[in-house]
């Protein structure tokens, strides 16, 4: 059974326009899922549906056997689905890093000694051990977001959801955050859902959902997704530069294989081509 599943979920904020329409999706344990869509496509609402911050008007969200329909299971769902939001500043409750990370475990009623261990583990996971006693106000955007991730990891969720967590960061901060969460996915087998509007972030995902106007318009592996350039452009999404270059070259008759996603792949294929000549 899937770790998280959505069955024909619809949700509306104002009971007029549906922010999410009839969405069904599944996320398996250990998977890296990317959800991509332009601004206002309803992708952030999906994050809030995952952990019960929003309740579906129709349909059902089931996390690890707990249904969002049951009010009592809300706490269990939130224990399992950790969401990191966009603005790191608006996610922290304390003026010292370790106190902030302790907030989640404190809410769960974890014993004092274990909270200490969890803080250590969470900070090590995001590579921020030396900042345990620092004040978040003095950290960079990327560092703050890593602390926010640590704050969620201390709850020991089964699923880590990034709700546009890289959107406010500079390129360096974005790289830091992505490296951290992708390593967690690989090494600790944390199920990862990355909700984003950056196409280049979905390249390494196992599965991609493309969201437009609250509906899933496309799903598949990154390769399958990137092959449908016209559809993506209709959804207001642009391919990563390397994919674009490769496709343009193919259109011009250069003999490149389909499905080039990263600049490393592109360089590789071009070198192969050059050797053939």
């Amino acid at each position: 059974m899937a770790l998280l599943s959505m069955e024909k979920v619809s949700f509306s904020y104002d009971k007029k326009i549906d922010a999410v329409k009839n969405v069904s999706l599944t996320v398996d344990e250990g998977e890296y899922v990317a959800i991509i869509g332009h601004n206002g496509s309803g992708k952030s609402t999906l994050a809030k549906l995952f952990n019960g911050l929003c309740k579906p008007d129709s349909g059902e969200v089931v996390v690890d056997g707990f249904s969002c329909k049951d009010k009592k299971s809300l706490f269990e769902i939130r224990k399992r689905v950790g969401v990191v939001f966009q603005n790191p500043d608006n996610q922290m409750v304390a003026s010292i890093v370790e106190d902030d990370i302790a907030f989640g475990p404190e809410n769960l009623g974890v014993k004092r000694e274990e909270i200490g261990e969890r803080i250590q583990f969470a900070l090590a996971s995001v590579g921020m051990e030396e900042f345990r006693k620092s004040s978040p106000a003095r950290l960079s955007g990327g560092q703050k977001q890593r602390i926010a991730i640590a704050g969620v990891l201390a709850i020991k969720p089964k699923i880590l959801v990034l709700d546009e967590s890289t959107a406010m960061l500079d390129p360096q901060g974005r790289k830091e955050v992505l490296e951290v969460v992708e390593r967690l996915n690989k090494e600790q087998k944390t199920t990862l859902i990355n909700i984003t509007h950056y196409m280049d972030e979905v390249v390494r995902a196992d599965k991609v959902y493309v969201v437009n106007d609250g509906e899933i318009v496309l799903s598949g592996t990154p390769k399958e997704i990137f092959a449908k350039r016209e559809l993506l452009e209709e959804c207001g999404l642009e391919l990563p530069v390397s994919s674009k270059i490769a496709q343009k070259l193919i259109e011009l008759g250069v003999n490149l294989p389909d499905g080039i996603l990263t600049k490393e792949q592109l360089a590789e294929e071009l070198c192969v081509l050059k050797q053939k000549i």
Binding site: F75, G82, V93, E106, N107, K111, I115
Partner: peptide
């Protein structure tokens, strides 16, 4: 929202780290 997402549910059954 972020506090809710981090399982905050008031002072009930809460422990204190500090």
């Amino acid at each position: 929202d972020a506090m809710d997402a981090r399982c905050y549910s008031g002072s009930k059954n809460r422990t204190k780290y500090k």
